[in-house]
Nucleic acid binder design. Structure first.
Lengths: 210, 210
DNA sequence: TCCAGAACCGAGCGATCGATCGGTCGGTGT
DNA sequence: ACACCGACCGATCGATCGCTCGGTTCTGGA
């Protein structure tokens, strides 16, 4: 199927950071994602993943050396895509903190809608990851948080944001965006665009945007 | 130890809704709580729980009929205490939506700080609960959400809150409060009172409180 | 003093877990 | 023609899972 060697880790969509195609993950990873999202990492057997991938158990182990490797590949791909999209959103945004804030928050919101399962699995199964992989994941997560915090601080300095508690507001905004993965349903009453508009407005008021 | 028959489910603290004593859970439940918080429900063996409780496996099964019963008792106790404290906070609060909003949000914030592990386990292990128990849990959760939503709606009607999206703001506020359990650490730099003050201010601005 | 019942335990049940062994099979290069 | 390799699988490994059987020990009331 693939004409090149490495296409595993990256689900890289080269289009706009706003556009989300279907998931585009190797079949075993997609199977693991579905199973982990439904039953959790420890609640999912390697046999279940193999069956969903249309493989035997040894067939699955031919592609991935362990159950843990499935989880690590999954979470790594998730965080890389999230950071990549956030950076692209920032690079297209205007120079003011307000514009940059809107860009990152919108990117975060959209990601947690359209990559809901991946984001959910990654954040809930952090504790199932071995220390080394978990630290790498946390580092990427912190990087995302830092992006938000720095923009908010810049906005407070420039006077565009009036919050007396920039750090706490930053955490609240990130929590709200990540929380989208907990409740968003594609068949909900509001369109993604409407949800982005509303939650972005709430995020703005949380930092005291004028 | 206990002078009466039933003291299991309820950890009821009769004092102020603001005051939190130590956890006060039967030893097996406390053991299950610690283990579930660390490794998750499926990642925890019944032997691990028994060992932490200072019991043999049959000794543990003498008190609780199944692993699932441990989880159900735990989550039921959590939600009952949360709702009880929220209702007491409301009953002590003034009549205006602003006062009532502050009371529920402060109660939610404090609960997720001082009952961090219980709240965390309850919300993350929802999917490990059998349908019947999960529905009961979700019902209590929805009741808590409804408390917030109704207050916000009343505040919008009275003109005290200016948010154009009351439902979305309500979800954002609840998400922020519940998210406290994800990051709060007792040895953090800010005191619980400071964190309540800051996050309450953020919650107020999320609903457009004047 | 006796005993009923609560509280507990060592041993082990069948089932399932993650992982592996020793292969088969089809396609590719020479 | 033949060696080779990636892709895959049936069978099974030892370990561990949730749970139970058949007991023993502890304790308070009659």
């Amino acid at each position: 199927m693939s004409m090149d060697t490495r296409e595993d880790q990256v689900s890289g969509d080269a289009g706009s950071w706003r556009h989300y195609g279907p998931v585009s993950l190797p079949k075993p990873l997609a199977a693991a994602l579905d199973a982990f999202a439904e039953r959790g990492y420890d609640g999912t057997s390697i046999r279940e993943v193999a069956a969903r991938a249309g493989l035997s158990v040894p067939g699955l182990y031919h592609h991935y050396p362990s159950k843990q490797a499935l989880l690590v590949s999954l979470t790594t791909a998730v965080m890389n895509e999230l950071l990549d999209r956030s950076r692209r959103a920032l690079s297209e945004a205007g120079p003011t903190p307000s514009e940059r804030f809107d860009a990152v928050v919108e990117s975060l919101l959209r990601f947690h809608m359209f990559r809901r399962d991946q984001a959910f699995v990654a954040s809930t199964e952090m504790r199932s990851m071995e220390p080394e992989s978990r630290e790498a994941y946390v580092a990427l997560r912190d990087e995302q948080q830092r992006m938000i915090d720095e923009i908010i601080e810049a906005g407070v300095e420039s006077g565009e944001f009036t919050t007396p508690f920039p750090r706490d507001a930053g955490r609240a905004v990130a929590t709200m965006c990540i929380g989208v993965a907990d409740w968003y349903r594609p068949d909900g009453m509001l369109t993604p665009d409407e949800l982005v508009e509303r939650n972005l407005a709430i995020a703005r008021s949380a930092v005291g945007a004028l």
